[in-house]
Simulated scan of single mutants.
Amino acid sequence: MGTYNKQTTRIKGNRNIVGNNNSVNSRHEEHHYHYHQGASSKPNKSDDAAGAGIGVLFALATTCWFFVKNSDAVYFYLQLAACISCAPIIATWLLVIFGNDVDNKQTVAACYGVVIAFITFMLALYGQSQLDPALLLLSQNAKNGWEFWQRLSPYGQEVVIGSLISAICIGGAAFFNFLMGLFVTWDVIASDYYDSHVMSRILNPFRPKIGGVLIAFLTLIAAAFQFGFVFNFIK
């Protein structure tokens, strides 16, 4: 790939990250909403819908640009979150070592939390390694999200959206895994006072029967988008 500059760069192929024509033609559009005498004063609903759609697309483009531009930091914190998410599970095992009684359900939940932490860490590591350097270069040279989005090929847009959704799901899975670990740890410590402890009631929605299912769902969605299964299925 040639040196990035303001000249037109042409790249052939259906799986290119950047578009076939990277020159950006700026187009200034103005929408005037005048209320003339004799004209209806009611706003055009189609114009409102179009404006909302453009706003959503611009917000998506800006989010994708920010994500790719700061991807190294994003994936670093995702990997860190995955590691921290199993901290309560480690605390649970320490309690076991020091003689606290742990039933089979708590043991299974603790093992499940460790597995989820490992999977989310590996997904974050894989996601970071799979981001094409051309994407990073493009995000650094683009002045804004809209310019970045326009320069992407359709395949590049799929890669960015898939990586973004996957990163969000990885973060969500790590967060809920941490809360599930807190529930298991607290359940081991205060099982005799479960109904009276405020902390147990707060963490109750994150017990393995509920939190575990949510975590598994988020992890599967993250993997599906990260490996491109979703867009391949849609096509």
Rank of each mutant, 00 (worst) to 15 (best):
H197F: 10
S166D: 09
G2W: 14
C111I: 08
L95G: 05
A216T: 10
N16V: 06
E29S: 11
A222Q: 07
P208M: 11
S46N: 13
D101P: 05
D48N: 09
F58G: 10
G162I: 01
F118D: 02
I17H: 12
N16H: 09
L214Y: 15
A73K: 14
N141H: 14
W65A: 00
P154V: 03
C86P: 00
C169H: 09
N204H: 14
F229M: 07
I221P: 10
H32W: 13
V108F: 01
P88H: 02
M180L: 03
L94Q: 05
K6W: 15
A124Y: 09
N232Y: 15
D103T: 04
Q37M: 08
A59M: 14
D72V: 04
A134S: 12
W93K: 08
E147P: 05
A117T: 10
S85I: 08
F98G: 08
K235M: 11
G19M: 04
K143D: 11
P88M: 03
V213W: 14
P88R: 00
G53C: 09
Q157M: 04
Y4S: 13
C111N: 12
Y35I: 13
Q130T: 09
G127N: 05
I189H: 07
Q37E: 13
A87E: 04
N5H: 10
M1I: 14
I97W: 10
